[in-house]
Nucleic acid binder design. Structure first.
Lengths: 245, 245
DNA sequence: CGAGGTTTTGACTCCACTCAATAGACGTGG
DNA sequence: CCACGTCTATTGAGTGGAGTCAAAACCTCG
């Protein structure tokens, strides 16, 4: 994985840039975030960052790599709810909801910065504006979740996949991890299937369909969008739900 | 529709009870909420409370009736994301995200109390604890959305429907609108279908299947759960995601 | 009683699933 | 550098869940 969000790679700097991409931050806000103590840890691919059922005492910020949130059902089927990329804080909600009802898993090798809940709480107590920005961020996460509901409920396989490809492109571009209509997509087809509510066989066939339509290629984890407007059309993709400034 | 949440039916009292059902509120918090100016309005069934694309200047609190959030796709298909019942504030997010990317529709006749954004903002600025409770509430809403993702992605029709019936029972019970394993479900089968990502024909057949299994009956808008544990089992329902205290 | 919405049924189609086998990629160690 | 095991991707054949279309039965209410 390459650098995200430009030059300063310190966790606070990344978080500041991320929040500033969807909300206004004052200098005082930036200063307060800059004081947050982070602990950086690296997880190998396919390992659990937070387990289903855990009650974490810290929040995490993805610095490098990808992670996903998922749950496994009784029959062994898995559903992936969301993907998280550098700049995202997948589990701010653990500040308010004490038991995680889903796990957080690193996809490729993933570097994560942890902040203790007590430090986050101190920050948001003393700094309403930052609290609002974080709240807003969780609301955007919910918006993406709703978009997934539409996909699963009302789009068929090819459209769902196209939609995911569009969303990840736009999101990765805001953290400088995609440009020129291409990005690293560190997922297996089985993981894609688990996110899209498909079997892996059908995920494979849908991907082939997108290739055949001349919209994308995916080879060795590199996704290349050959026809953005075609892809966006088959996905019925409208990026406004991402609420980027 | 009958009374929700006990005796005092004023909007602030309802909101206080609702927030207190998932978070701790001090007397100061309760006092501050009590001062909120609400404007009460009643909507006939099947009318829009907030339109897709609106930028509301107020939040709403359901006092009586049901509402749902939905979006219509280009081909005319509809997806319902969530149902809201008395005590719920479906669009607190409009405080942070200024354009609604989905509409809010009254199902049966529904009474709603509106609070201006500026009053809500004043409340949460001066009262961190209330802000946290509201934030928490939006996170629980997101949790329900994720549960819907699992349903749509990994459960089949009968299980999805069973899951919705379980969820609504538990939620309505916390506002005293369900007990004795029965409640008013003011939805047509077409609306049920739009929530579950099904065609209305298949929604009908799934409902018949639940009847045939002896789990529920639904007649004249009254849902009767005949076998709770059977229903919860076919739904794989685990209420912890609702984060009720 | 009639009109309009809602629920139910039937027949047919098709999208997506399962099972199973093959092919390709990748990494490790001999 | 090749052999091997292990993932991952691909293909085929058969099945089944859910969709579509259309008509009939049923409320409900003016």
């Amino acid at each position: 994985m390459s650098d995200a969000l430009g030059s300063d790679q310190s966790p606070p700097a990344l978080l500041i840039r991320k929040l500033a991409s969807t909300a206004q931050l004052s200098d005082r806000d930036r200063g307060a975030i800059g004081m947050l103590p982070f602990a950086v840890l690296t997880f190998p691919g396919r390992t659990s960052i937070v387990h289903e059922g855990d009650a974490p005492k810290q929040c995490c910020l993805i610095l490098d790599g990808w992670a996903y949130r998922c749950r496994t059902l009784a029959n062994g089927q898995r559903q992936i709810f969301a993907f998280y990329v550098p700049g995202d804080m997948p589990d701010i909600e653990s500040l308010h909801l004490h038991v995680m009802d889903q796990g957080l898993v690193a996809i490729a090798q993933t570097t994560v910065a942890f902040v203790a809940h007590k430090d986050m709480r101190a920050l948001i107590q003393s700094n309403t504006n930052v609290a609002m920005a974080l709240w807003r961020d969780t609301l955007i996460d919910a918006t993406r979740c709703r978009e997934r509901v539409i996909s699963l409920g009302r789009r068929q396989a090819v459209g769902r996949m196209a939609h995911l490809f569009c969303e990840m492109y736009v999101r990765l571009r805001t953290v400088a991890l995609a440009d020129d209509l291409r990005y690293l997509l560190p997922l297996t087809q089985a993981e894609l299937a688990d996110a899209l509510g498909l079997s892996s066989v059908h995920a494979n066939r849908s991907l082939q369909e997108l290739r055949k339509m001349g919209l994308v290629t995916l080879h060795r984890r590199e996704l290349i969008i050959q026809d953005w407007s075609g892809l966006a059309t088959t996905a019925e993709f409208d990026p406004s739900y991402l609420h980027l400034i």
